[in-house]
Design a binder for these strands. Structure first.
Lengths: 341, 341
DNA sequence: GGGGAGAATGTCTACGTAGTCATTTCGTGC
DNA sequence: GCACGAAATGACTACGTAGACATTCTCCCC
């Protein structure tokens, strides 16, 4: 009945059907004020009949705005990045933006640049670096749209670089380390994340400084790759050392791997060795023993960061003075205890 | 030195600098054959100097192709969907497509429609439904681009609906159930996923049919929400029932929750109760006890599905006769064993 | 050296929308 | 009933690219 439409209806078709000019259709769909209620109704009815949908490409061509934000995530399905991505999409959609994703894969040295280029080519109004890594190559990444870095500001050259920082005194890694020392452990061993990652370096750094400040011996730390498997492998070495009574892993999955290794070696957790993780992944409360860890509210981080970013996009002159902050929350469960004896 | 460019360079600017026509620039950037090597060089040099990047919006406006694929994922950070998303992006980028994500949130009944609309508005060449859920409303979802359903074909009305199916005889849930029965368990209890989810229904269905085929009693199954917490809560009930000796959870996280509940109730796993999961998440090998589960190669699923889809987009007349298939692989670990006496 | 084929490049145009500015319509006061 | 400002609408145009078609150039052969 409606006739087959070879190509989708445009605002001109809607205008013809509604008996108005194309410009008026444009006005209706952009919620411009100078349109009478009756005309608006008529246009909307016509649009509905034709199944009209504004052409985003034409709009972007003309205005230069895409209403799309690119997110550089990492090529992993770890809980942190994944939940952040979900939260970002949700926050973006609420303000009528859409999200494009590009992953920077660990094994590919040029991954970050390739991911960013992929986003720039398709047209994005800004780029969010979720869990940034540093480019090893040394030459800074050139990005010609504003950048929001979540958690850190890596070496990028962009018109504007915004960031969401950890709250003052909210060094979560330090808090965990202090907590373990406070239980009576002589020192705390650390299993770090890959050093390329800003988050991994920061956690290691805070752990290190906390030990030094407390006058505790600083054991050598070794780096895993965030996976439970890497935690397991590094954990087997630690399990052999009877002096090890407390281990802080840079994320929960490695912590779970460490506990696995300790179990296998016959060392009780937390009886002989305390283990703490980082992230508070959903299973952390349900593994055996349940994991002491630090959670962060990724939903809020995404919401706050995205608002900060789009506020800037809408009014670049008016950069908020202070970047928003992000807080962590330690959760004490059963994988940590006072040292025996 | 390069002078400030208020707006980014276009192909016209490049053409002027290179001393050629705009159309020739277009040819170079589209790898068209009729361009001499020397001209190509000159154009590329000019483009480099100006920092030229083809305007995707203009191209999309003219050609109607966006080289962008929309993925409807779910608003969760579970391993299955997340790893699939990562794999899809990787596969898409390899063939010069980009990916837009929209999440359909569980709590929002209109989530699926809203997610799809968000994708359609921004312009995508096709939509991938990862882990589809059925719209409860009953009225089918109308999508005016081709759709690829991974794992199932939900009720959508689209010009083309492709799907990737489970391989023949690859009923992974059936395989797990048979395996548990084969160990000597009288029957197998099941903790299902949310019934809206196609995957949850299918696993439950296969579990059910396998029990019936084996002449085993079919216990009532209850549904969780994929989280470890829901598995824990449902598991507490099962832990009280001494007849329960084998439990098959619809995903690994719920299985971990179930084991938690059993531990708490003092029931040994796998000594008294065997528990199997589904997905083979990375920590499954490292929890205590390590988890018997079923893994699937999401990277391959993404690769195969995306190739199938883009082949179709490039040549719609030539639909491959049979949809590609997807295989699962059972991994037996320490959470399952023969029933004790 | 004229002709011709094919390679290389150019000209012109349309895609669908929103900005700019012009024009029409409406309501109000006198 | 006329002037006048504001509200409502319209006409025209540009955005950056690629398709269709035209034109020029190159090389080779008789």
């Amino acid at each position: 009945m409606t006739g087959d439409r070879k190509r989708p209806a445009g605002s001109v078709d809607v205008a013809r059907l509604a008996g108005v000019s194309q410009k008026t259709v444009s006005r209706v769909f952009n919620n411009e004020p100078r349109v009478s209620g009756e005309t608006r109704e008529r246009v909307l009815a016509a649009a509905r009949e034709l199944g009209y949908r504004p052409n985003s490409a034409a709009r972007a061509l003309l205005t230069g705005r895409h209403y799309r934000i690119g997110v550089v995530s990492l090529g992993t399905a770890h809980f942190g990045p994944s939940s952040l991505l979900v939260a970002l999409e949700r926050a973006a959609r609420r303000i009528s933006y859409s999200l494009s994703v590009a992953n920077s894969f660990e094994e590919d040295a040029t991954g970050l640049k390739a991911a960013v280029d992929n986003l720039l080519v398709q047209g994005v109004d800004a780029i969010i670096l979720s869990e940034p890594v540093d480019d090893e190559g040394g030459e800074p990444l050139v990005i010609d749209v504003p950048v929001l870095a979540l958690g850190a500001a890596p070496v990028v050259q962009a018109p504007t670089v915004l960031s969401v920082r950890a709250a003052e005194g909210g060094d979560a890694a330090a808090e965990v380390t202090r907590y373990l020392l406070g239980l009576g452990h002589r020192t705390v061993h650390h299993i770090a994340g890959p050093p390329r990652w800003w988050a991994a370096r920061e956690r290691r750094h805070n752990w290190h400084d906390t030990l030094v400040a407390a006058g505790a011996e600083v054991p050598e730390s070794r780096s895993g790759d965030w996976t439970a498997r890497s935690g397991y492998e590094l954990g087997r070495d630690l399990a052999r050392d009877p002096d090890v009574t407390a281990i802080f892993a840079a994320n929960d999955e490695m912590a779970i791997g460490v506990i696995h290794a300790l179990h296998e070696a016959g060392r009780d957790v937390p009886g002989e060795v305390s283990v703490a993780g980082f992230d508070d992944i959903p299973v952390a409360a349900h593994v055996w023993p349940s994991l002491t860890t630090v959670g962060s509210d990724n939903a809020e981080l995404a919401e706050v960061g995205l608002t900060y970013l789009t506020d800037f996009l809408n009014d670049p002159e008016h950069v908020p003075p202070a970047p928003p902050q992000h807080v962590h929350q330690m959760v004490i469960r059963n994988s940590t205890a006072r040292p025996s004896a």
